[in-house]
Design a protein around this nucleic acid. Sequence first.
DNA 1: TTGACTTGTGCAACCGCTTGCACTATGGAT
DNA 2: ATCCATAGTGCAAGCGGTTGCACAAGTCAA
Lengths: 330, 330
Amino acid sequence: MAVTIHDVARLAGVNSSTVSRVINGKATISPDTKERVYAAMRELDYHPNSLARSLASGLSGAIGVVVDARDAEAFSNVFFSRSLFAIEHAAQVRGYQVIIANGAQSRGGTVENLMKEHKVDGLILPPTTVKPALMETIGDFPYVVLGTPDTLRSETCWVDNNNEQGAEMAVQHLSKMGYCQIAYLGGYQKRGFTRRRVRGYKNANQGCEIIFPTDGTSENAFAAALEALKKENHPDAFVCNDNLAAYGLLKACRELHLSVPQEIGIVAFDNYPLAEYMDPPLTIVDIDTAMLGEQSAQLLFRRIENRVGIQQIMLSTNLVIRASSERKAK
Amino acid sequence: MAVTIHDVARLAGVNSSTVSRVINGKATISPDTKERVYAAMRELDYHPNSLARSLASGLSGAIGVVVDARDAEAFSNVFFSRSLFAIEHAAQVRGYQVIIANGAQSRGGTVENLMKEHKVDGLILPPTTVKPALMETIGDFPYVVLGTPDTLRSETCWVDNNNEQGAEMAVQHLSKMGYCQIAYLGGYQKRGFTRRRVRGYKNANQGCEIIFPTDGTSENAFAAALEALKKENHPDAFVCNDNLAAYGLLKACRELHLSVPQEIGIVAFDNYPLAEYMDPPLTIVDIDTAMLGEQSAQLLFRRIENRVGIQQIMLSTNLVIRASSERKAK
DNA sequence: TTGACTTGTGCAACCGCTTGCACTATGGAT
DNA sequence: ATCCATAGTGCAAGCGGTTGCACAAGTCAA
């Protein structure tokens, strides 16, 4: 059927093991033989069967990327899938294949399946999967968590963006722009990253914490903001947990005829495609999802090659300053 | 190292071929033996090595999903990656593994690599890869294009949403709402789906075509809309190629104090997360990316199992009516 | 010239599983 | 009692590579 290493060997007049060595380049082969083998491979359009290769060598040359997509449209997926491209790219460069699997709907066997049946060389996992039981079965198999796990933080290997620092930056920026009553709007407190953002906000905003948690929807943020802004001594700036919250806030400001950024300053997390087209354009704590993916893949490769131990990488976030926080008159 | 089929066989007191047959269930095995084998598998925590399985059986149990992510943030990717989850889900249900690969940065070998080296059983491809040369190497290997290819439309196997019908629906809806000068805004004409949307627009809007192509950015749409709306006899409704164009248009309306939907009606393609929070909320031609992914995977499985020939599936789009097109007074 | 290495290649076992073929019981049908 | 299906299982040859070991030929110092 398909061309095998033996066909190539026959044509080149050598043994198949020689062809194998030429392909893998980890033995000294005479230039002459090498050339004949290459010629034969070209002539026959030979493609090594990676299945057979993996089986014999014990290395699959694949990594598994587990996603946790309970709710298909949740932001976390967009977030994860954006990183996915970067992961794929890094993998391709290193000659690795990327297998994706959804850990949410299957009954927990995803990771085991990937490790034991598919023999991937390493795994990239979402923070939600980090539970003692799983870590038990993982043992010292190479993996990297993309995001900060809620538990076992210091014993696991992960890469995340620094949400805490992002929130601090946002507060500092707002206060530098002259806003003095900075509130935090939005965020579902069960999410680890939200809690970290809120913590950063608190750190930088010592003494005057005003937090309006929401259910994550824009309407809810609108309602919360509306109520907050109607009060006498209302905040003059908000750090928003995401773009949806910011949008609700913008709407509330419009409704109350409060001008942004003159009267109300806004900084929001995450750079949605429309953020820069809002009115006014939103100042954003941007998360470099591509870098996140890239770094997690690189760390995983280092772990696979056993060059590093358990390690955590915290990437800093970027403040993209746009009109929503640029008070003109101080 | 790992538990093999032989270990199980030994423990169960049978030959390894019997264990194999129990696993695959395609031979008659006595209930007694079967039970002993299952017990042994459980006791040893046996996981079949899928690599060896694929090699021996000639079926990899994997499908390859090729993405074309030149520009990491382009909409097409978001679009594709949303479908990806649905594809993964369908694959998981059928026991298939999903391998993703980016076809853009590699020098064209992605598909060959997946087919010949990784022995995937089928492929899901982006429309951009459909070129005569590739179709040549693909031959009658099972594949499905996710989107409508620009060439070889009737000879290839694809699944797409009906952009043409979507645009027609948009026009009909606007005209039913009492708008009579309906224009088309936005769209990069090189993109096949844009051309199809424009064609649908033209079909439904016979005789009075007003088209404002843009470079795809919101600013450009803003400028184009502003200019168009300043004219005496300007359009009173727009079908927008995407949410960004709609956003530019909304901004232009605000600038010119034209009320939406009273004076200007808007329908836009694609349901961005913020679309329903815009002011006013946008009426949308929604594309069911999950269904698109699901259908393409299902079609691929049918092809893999050789149950159907070349086939095209056109999914209809949904109109999500919101305030931006609901003129109150006629 | 000899002995000790190095270099280049072949041999054959093995990776873990599948599957065609052969063989033994077993249960009717005749 | 004889013959024939048929169910249930084992044997062994692959699937397409990798790799430890063996060995011939060549290099070089003594």
